[in-house]
C-alpha cells in the first residue's frame, strides 16, 4: 500500500480536477431533440449536447398508436419542421446514426392549444359585459396569441438550449466522489478479510 499512497494518486487527482475546471462549460456526447409548436407548425431542433448541430439526420414522427406518420431530415442548422399532421400525441424520434437516438414528446393538448382557435372558426361575441369594445373577444384572443407566439419564440429556443446543456460540475464531481467511495468500500472489505485471515 505504501508505494501506492505516496506519489502518483495525488497528481492524477489534480489532473482530473484541472480537466473538470477547463471543461466546466462541459461538452458532451449525447444527441438531443427538442420540439415546440408555433401556429400550425411543429418545429424541432436537434443537437449534440455539446451544442454542435445535427445536420442531415433522420427525424421520424409517430402518433399515439406508435405508427410512423411522417419522416424527414434535419437541415444544416439541425432544424426540421412540419405541419401538424393529425391531432394526437406526437412522438418525435431523432436517429443520429452511430447508435445515437433521442426522443421528444408533444402532447395533444399542446397541439390544440395553438391550433384550435382559427380566425373565423368561432363567432365573435357581440358585446362584452365590461362595455362596448371595437374588437370582438375572439379577435382580441387571436391577436394576443399571435403576439405571444412571437414573444415566446426566443424563450422556446432558450428552453431548447437548456435541455441540451451538458453535465454540470456538480454531477461530474459527484461521479468522481462515487468512484472513490466505491474504492473505499472495496479497500475496507479487502483489509478486513486480511485481518481476519
Amino acid at each position: 500500500m505504501e508505494r501506492i499512497r505516496n506519489n502518483y494518486i495525488f497528481p492524477l487527482i489534480l489532473a482530473l480536477f484541472s480537466v473538470v475546471a477547463v471543461n466546466s462549460s462541459a461538452l458532451a456526447h449525447r444527441a438531443t431533440i427538442f420540439g415546440w409548436v408555433e401556429g400550425d407548425t411543429v418545429l424541432t431542433e436537434s443537437k449534440f449536447s455539446g451544442g454542435k448541430r445535427l445536420v442531415n439526420s433522420e427525424v421520424r414522427v409517430f402518433n399515439s398508436k406508435g405508427e410512423e406518420i411522417l419522416k424527414g431530415r434535419t437541415d444544416d442548422r439541425g432544424e426540421f419542421s412540419f405541419k401538424i399532421p393529425e391531432m394526437t400525441d406526437l412522438q418525435i424520434v431523432l436517429d443520429a446514426g452511430m447508435g445515437h437516438r433521442a426522443e421528444w414528446r408533444i402532447p395533444e393538448a399542446e397541439l390544440r392549444g395553438d391550433v384550435d382557435v382559427m380566425p373565423g372558426s368561432v363567432k365573435p361575441v357581440e358585446s362584452s359585459p365590461e362595455g362596448p369594445t371595437l374588437l370582438g373577444r375572439e379577435e382580441v384572443k387571436q391577436i394576443v396569441e399571435d403576439s405571444l407566439d412571437t414573444k415566446l419564440r426566443p424563450i422556446a429556443r432558450r428552453l431548447a438550449e437548456m435541455e441540451e446543456k451538458g453535465p454540470s460540475v456538480t454531477e461530474i464531481l459527484g461521479g468522481i466522489g462515487y468512484i472513490f467511495g466505491l474504492m473505499g468500500v472495496a479497500l475496507y472489505f479487502k483489509s478486513r478479510g486480511k485481518n481476519n485471515g
Binding site: I13, L16, V19, H29, I172, G175, I176
Partner: peptide, 13 residues
C-alpha cells in the same frame, strides 16, 4: 483512478 479518468474523459470533446 482510471475509472474516474474514463468517467471524465468522455466530457473532453
Amino acid at each position: 483512478v482510471l475509472s474516474s479518468a474514463f468517467f471524465v474523459a468522455s466530457l473532453i470533446h
